[in-house]
Simulated scan of single mutants.
Amino acid sequence: MTHTPDPNSPGPDSPERAQADFTRSLSYGDYLHLDTLLSAHQPLTGAHDEHLFIAVHHVSEVWLHLINVELRAAMRALEAGVVDAPLKGLTRVVRALEQLTQAWEVLKTMTPADYLQFRGAFGAASGFQSANYRTMEFLLGNRHAALLRPHAHRPDLHAPLSADFHAPSLYDLALRLLAERGLPIPDEVLHRDRTRPPTPHPEVLAAWLTVYRDPERSWDLYELAEKLLDVEDNFRRWRYNHLTTVERTIGFKTGSGGTSGAGYLRRALETVLFPELWQVRTEL
């Protein structure tokens, strides 16, 4: 006897097959706490583009948080002498930085006139005060005591930031790994003042040159060096796109957080996180 399918029965690919009862299980919105997430989107004015401004910054904070999670995981592995896991984590950091860079492209659809409709509403609030961004900077080694001050009013933020400010950076741990592998990293570098940004050192450059001149002998260290450079390269691109976004939106006006705005961002582009990894190209 031939079975004739019921034309009114939903097929295996029909949306009617999807689960629809969530009285006893998590739904998509429940799992992601979307009510809480979207309730944080609260414009202060009726300006249409304020929605865009808030959305881009919310999304950017989520990416920054993920970057910090991945940086910490990579740093724990490096501290334990492991290289493979950090390579994967740092690749994820690079991809997240690419998303952050692209977020500025969305914000650039806002014109100066659009921005001025709500600019005065948020007062001195500024991305300069982002604890997620500051954490990323500290983990990557860009440290200045003044950068802690905007968080003094929040002990819950200031305490972990201060801990990161005094702890070894990602690059510090990479150099420590080189020393553990027998490369001559001087004690003055291994025990440097971690509250200061890194400065180029000829013996560190010599150690990296050893790795780069014979990559097959220390392939994992060579890969680590290139991945660190990927991170800094994409960090610079994100900062540059931030600068051009600010310049086309407010020109050279003072930033909302009290910095010089575009001038401050342009100077920040001069920061070098892993100096010897850039110098090694010239010396090869």
Rank of each mutant, 00 (worst) to 15 (best):
D13S: 12
P15A: 02
P15N: 02
R17T: 12
R17H: 09
R17E: 08
A18Y: 12
F22M: 02
F22Y: 13
T23N: 04
L26T: 15
S27F: 02
S27A: 14
Y28M: 08
G29H: 08
D30Q: 08
D30E: 09
Y31M: 15
H33Q: 13
H33R: 15
T36H: 13
T36F: 08
H41P: 06
Q42I: 08
P43F: 02
P43C: 04
T45R: 01
T45M: 03
G46Y: 13
H48I: 06
E50N: 03
E50Q: 01
L52Q: 04
L52M: 04
F53I: 02
F53C: 04
F53G: 03
I54L: 11
A55C: 11
V56K: 15
H58K: 03
V59H: 09
V59R: 05
S60P: 04
S60V: 04
E61V: 07
V62D: 13
V62T: 14
L64D: 00
L64N: 00
L66N: 14
I67E: 02
N68H: 03
V69P: 01
L71F: 00
R72F: 10
R72Q: 15
A73I: 07
A74K: 09
A74T: 03
A74Y: 01
A74C: 15
M75F: 03
M75K: 06
R76Q: 12
A77R: 15
A77L: 12
E79F: 02
E79V: 05
A80E: 03
G81C: 15
V82A: 11
V83Y: 15
D84L: 10
A85C: 11
L87C: 11
K88S: 10
L90W: 11
T91R: 14
T91Q: 12
T91A: 08
T91E: 07
V93F: 02
A96D: 12
A96R: 06
L97Y: 06
L97G: 08
E98Y: 11
E98W: 02
Q99S: 09
Q99E: 12
L100R: 08
L100Y: 05
Q102N: 08
Q102R: 10
W104N: 01
V106S: 07
K108I: 09
K108G: 10
K108C: 13
T109K: 14
T109R: 11
M110V: 10
T111P: 00
P112F: 04
L116S: 11
Q117R: 14
R119T: 03
G120Y: 03
G123F: 10
G123L: 10
A124Q: 08
S126I: 06
S126M: 05
G127R: 00
G127S: 06
Q129C: 07
Q129Y: 12
S130M: 10
N132L: 10
N132I: 04
Y133M: 03
Y133L: 12
R134G: 02
T135P: 14
T135W: 13
M136N: 05
E137R: 08
L139D: 11
L140N: 14
L140P: 06
G141H: 00
G141F: 01
G141W: 01
N142A: 15
N142P: 15
N142Y: 15
